[in-house]
Computed example of a mutant assay.
Amino acid sequence: MATPKFTLELRKKIGHDLLWLIGVTGLVRDGEGRILLGRRSDTGEWALVYGINEPGEQPADTVVREIKEETGVDAVVSDLVAVTSSDHVLTYANGDQAQYMDHAFLCELKPGGNAEPFVGDDESLSVGWFGLDELPEPLAASTVERLALFKRYLANKEHGDAHALFVADGEQH
Rank of each mutant, 00 (worst) to 15 (best):
M1W: 08
T3V: 14
T7S: 03
L8F: 00
L10D: 10
R11F: 07
K13C: 04
I14Q: 02
L18N: 10
L19V: 13
W20E: 11
G23T: 02
V24Q: 05
T25C: 12
R29V: 14
D30N: 15
G31N: 11
L37W: 09
R39N: 14
T43S: 15
E45F: 09
E45Y: 12
L48T: 13
L48A: 09
Y50C: 04
Y50D: 06
G51W: 01
G51S: 05
E57Y: 09
P59S: 05
A60L: 01
A60N: 03
T62P: 02
V63I: 15
R65G: 12
R65F: 06
E70K: 15
T71A: 07
V77I: 05
S86Y: 03
L90A: 07
T91R: 13
Q97L: 00
Q99H: 00
D102G: 01
D102M: 02
P111Q: 07
A115C: 04
G120V: 05
D121N: 15
D121S: 14
S124I: 02
V127Q: 02
W129N: 13
E134D: 15
E137H: 13
P138N: 06
P138V: 04
L147H: 08
L149T: 14
L149I: 13
K151S: 13
K151M: 08
N156I: 00
K157V: 07
H159Y: 01
G160K: 05
G160L: 09
D161N: 10
D161R: 08
D161L: 01
L165R: 08
L165P: 00
L165N: 15
D169W: 01
G170M: 05
